[in-house]
Design a protein around this nucleic acid. Structure first.
Lengths: 251, 251
DNA sequence: ACATATTTGTTCGTATGTATC
DNA sequence: CGATACATACGAACAAATATG
C-alpha cells in the first residue's frame, strides 16, 4: 500500500489534497494548528515538493488552508455542521445554534405525475399529480444542501404559495391541518457529486455528496412528504438519534 | 455548468466513470439494461470516444459493466447492500438475506490507553486501558466495511479471545453477562478514502467511504462499545430505522 | 448466403498536462 | 526555470463482431 497511486485517473496533487483534508478532519494536526513543512510533506507522500505545493494551492483556494509567507501553512478549521436525523427531525430546528445565518432558496417547483419511486413513497397511484419543489439551503453564505421534495398535489393544492409566504415546511403543513408528523424512513448513501450538484452546492469535481432519502408521515401513517436531499459531505455530518422519545422542537 | 471539468486534477475518463456509476444507481438505464453506444456517450459528455472507452474500461474492471463486441455495453447491476441502523441494530442480522456468504476478519487488536474521543464515548477516564479491534467485513468475497471498535479492557479482560472463538460481538457480550444493549448514537459522514481504507476495502483513489461513529450501551446507559466503521460507499447504503420499538433480531 | 448498419476493438499520430530531477 | 518521461486527450481510420432484413 503506497500513499499515492499513479495511473488512477486522479492527479497526485489531488490525491494528496484529499488526504490532507481527511487528516485535518481527523484532527491529526490539532496540536499545532498548522501543517508540517512542504519538504516534510513531500517526503511523507514520497513525491516531489512541487506536487505538494499544487495540493496546498488547491486547498488554499478551497478555503481549507491559509499560507503565510515564511511562517507556514495554517488550518482554517471548518467544523462540519451537524444535521440530526430522528423520528421527529425538523430541518431548521436541527441546525439551530450552529450557524449565524440560514437561508432556504426555492429554486424551482412544478406539478408533475408521480414516478414509480415517488408514488411508492407517498403511497399514491403512479401518475397521480404531485408537487415537486427544489430548494437550496445555505448556512453563513455557504450552500450546504440541495433538496427535492414531493407532496400530494390534490391534498395540498396551493402548498407552494403558502410555503412561500411562511418560509417553513412545518408551518405550511400546520396550515393544512397537520400539527404533527414523524419520519418513517431515512436512507443514506454517498456519491460523487453530479454536475448539477457541483453547480448547486458550489463544489469542485470529485467532491462528495451525502444523500438522504426520507419519508414523512402523519401519526396514523399517512404519507405526507417524500424528499431527496444532497448535502455537501465536507460541510455536513449526520447525527442519528435513536432515543425512543424524541422532541427536538419544531421548525 | 459543463458535464466534465478539465484541469481539475481528475482525469476526464474518471469523472465520466463516476457519472456513469451514479446514473446507473439512479436507475437511468433500467429500461434497456445497457448503456448508449460509445459515440453517443462521447457526444453527451463532449469528449473523444477514447475517453469514454477509458471510463468504461475502469467500470468493467470494477465489475459494474460488461462489454460485448458488436452488441453493446451492459450493466452488471450490483445493488448496494442495505445496512440498517437503529436502536437495536446488530451488524450480521442486518445483512441477513442480502448476501450469499459473509465473513468477518479480525485484522489486528491491541490494548491501549484511551484517547480523548474514545474516553468520552465510553465514559472512561482518559488513558484508561481499552481494547482496540480492527476488523474487515466481507460479503460475497467483496470487502464492504472496515471497523475499528473500542471496549473497556478492565471490564472485558479477554474479550478478544472469547470473540475469536464465538465469532460474534453480541454473543461475546452475552458471555460477559450483557444480554441486551442498544445504540445510543450514530454519526454519519462521508470522506475520500484514506490510503489505509483504499487498501483494506480494495478501492481505487478518489473512492468514497461512508463513515459511521457509533456508541452502544446497556439498557441502564452504561457504555459498552465505541466503534468507527468505514463502508465502501459504492457498495453500501444506510437505512435508518425510526420506529419506536425495534426488534431486528440478534447476531 | 449476402449486404449493410451498428457497435466495440485497435492502431496510428499529435498536442497538452503532470511529475520528476 | 528548463529538460525529460509518461499519462491524458483528441482525431482519423480501419478491423472485428453482431444484428437486421
Amino acid at each position: 500500500m503506497s500513499l499515492v497511486e499513479r495511473h488512477s485517473g486522479i492527479a497526485l496533487w489531488r490525491q494528496i489534497a484529499d488526504q490532507i483534508r481527511v487528516a485535518i478532519s481527523a484532527g491529526e494536526f490539532d496540536g499545532l494548528g498548522m501543517l508540517p513543512g512542504e519538504v516534510e510533506l513531500a517526503k511523507r507522500f514520497a513525491v516531489n515538493r512541487h506536487t505538494v505545493r499544487s495540493a496546498i494551492a488547491s486547498l488554499k483556494k478551497e478555503g481549507v488552508l491559509r499560507v503565510e509567507q515564511g511562517r507556514g501553512t495554517f488550518i482554517d478549521r471548518r467544523t462540519r455542521l451537524r444535521f440530526p436525523v430522528g423520528r421527529r427531525t425538523r430541518f431548521t430546528a436541527g441546525l439551530a445554534g450552529q450557524t449565524q445565518t440560514r437561508q432556504g432558496l426555492l429554486k424551482a417547483h412544478v406539478t408533475e405525475p408521480a414516478s414509480k419511486p415517488v408514488a411508492e413513497a407517498l403511497q399514491l397511484p403512479i401518475g397521480a399529480p404531485v408537487h415537486r419543489m427544489d430548494a437550496i439551503s445555505t448556512a453563513d453564505a455557504v450552500p450546504v444542501s440541495s433538496a427535492r421534495r414531493w407532496l400530494d398535489a390534490e391534498r395540498f393544492p396551493d402548498f407552494v404559495d403558502v410555503y412561500r409566504t411562511l418560509g417553513s415546511v412545518t408551518a405550511t403543513f400546520n396550515r393544512f391541518g397537520i400539527d404533527d408528523y414523524v419520519r418513517v424512513s431515512t436512507r443514506i448513501s454517498a456519491h460523487h457529486a453530479s454536475p448539477q450538484m457541483l453547480d448547486d452546492l458550489q463544489l469542485s469535481p470529485g467532491a462528495i455528496v451525502l444523500q438522504t432519502e426520507a419519508v414523512n408521515a402523519e401519526l396514523d401513517g399517512t404519507r405526507v412528504e417524500y424528499s431527496k436531499t444532497s448535502f455537501a459531505a465536507d460541510r455536513v455530518e449526520i447525527d442519528v438519534d435513536h432515543s425512543a422519545r424524541q422532541f427536538e422542537g419544531d421548525e
